[in-house]
């Protein structure tokens, strides 16, 4: 199992991504079995999520700028089983590549009709669906002409705290992927897993393109119950 994880997860230290140099732990992690606590996880009540939070385009008084899109996918465990009724949080820049955050100093316009935050619970098949706009690329200070490829952040809980994951979803065919150290920190075998597929079937004709992004959460190496 650790072989699988090493195959797809980035290392802590990836010097091309400068912020890792002082923040990456130098010692290897200690491997332990999940405690009974970590083999379970927080329960998000149904009331935690409002249906409207799955549509990031209806937050403002009118439609946000940008290319409307539908993001669908399934959350599965590594045995292929759906992860049911688990929280998926998404956040992203607006169409011009700007976040509503005080430390975002990118000289690009805010969109008063776009906050860029949403959340949804997966259904009984592990499916989620979010309506949003395609985020813009934006520059950052890592190196000359460093621009983050367009991406949507996803935060997932799964059914056990040991499955907790935060990741980023990228768009197919983006030329900026080749020069992005954050994306390229992932071993080659894992990179494809971070790129959504164009999925016309889940778009809305004349209104929005569909993209599919499935997420696989690792199972704990061995659950305390031995199942």
């Amino acid at each position: 199992m650790s072989g699988t994880l090493a195959d797809v997860h980035p290392p802590y230290l990836y010097p091309e991504y400068k912020s890792t140099r002082l923040r990456a732990p130098a010692q290897p992690p200690v491997r332990v079995a999940p405690s009974p606590l970590e083999a379970a996880g927080p329960t998000f009540p149904k009331s935690f999520v409002r249906d409207s939070e799955a549509d990031l385009t209806t937050w403002g008084k009118s439609a946000p700028l940008g290319e409307k899109m539908v993001l669908v996918g399934r959350v599965l465990d590594d045995a292929g089983r759906p992860v049911r009724r688990s929280l998926v949080e998404v956040w992203q820049a607006n169409a011009s590549g700007k976040y509503p955050h005080p430390v975002d100093d990118h000289d690009a316009p805010m969109d008063p009709n776009f906050l860029g935050k949403g959340q949804v619970l997966t259904d009984d098949e592990g499916r989620y669906r979010v309506v949003t706009i395609k985020p813009g690329a934006y520059p950052w200070q890592n190196h000359a002409f460093a621009w983050r490829p367009a991406h949507i952040h996803l935060s997932l809980f799964g059914s056990a705290y040991a499955q907790r994951l935060i990741t980023q979803m990228f768009f197919p065919g983006d030329p900026l992927l080749a020069i992005d150290p954050i994306f390229n920190s992932v071993p080659e075998a894992g990179r494809r897993l971070l790129i959504a597929d164009l999925d016309l079937e889940h778009g809305v004709e004349g209104v929005a393109l569909g993209y599919r992004f499935d997420v696989v959460l690792r199972g704990p190496r061995a659950t305390p119950m031995g199942v």
Binding site: T4, L5, D7, V8, H9, P10, Y17, S19, L76, D78, A79, G80, W91, A93, Y99, H101, V103, D104, H153, S155, L165, I166, T167, Q168, I182, F183, V186, P187, A189, G190, R191, L193, L194, D214, V215, V216, L217, R218
Partner: peptide, 13 residues
């Protein structure tokens, strides 16, 4: 049966 989705940084925002 399936490879886990790789982790990425939460970023600053």
């Amino acid at each position: 049966v399936a490879k886990p989705t790789p982790s990425q940084t939460v970023g600053p925002f």
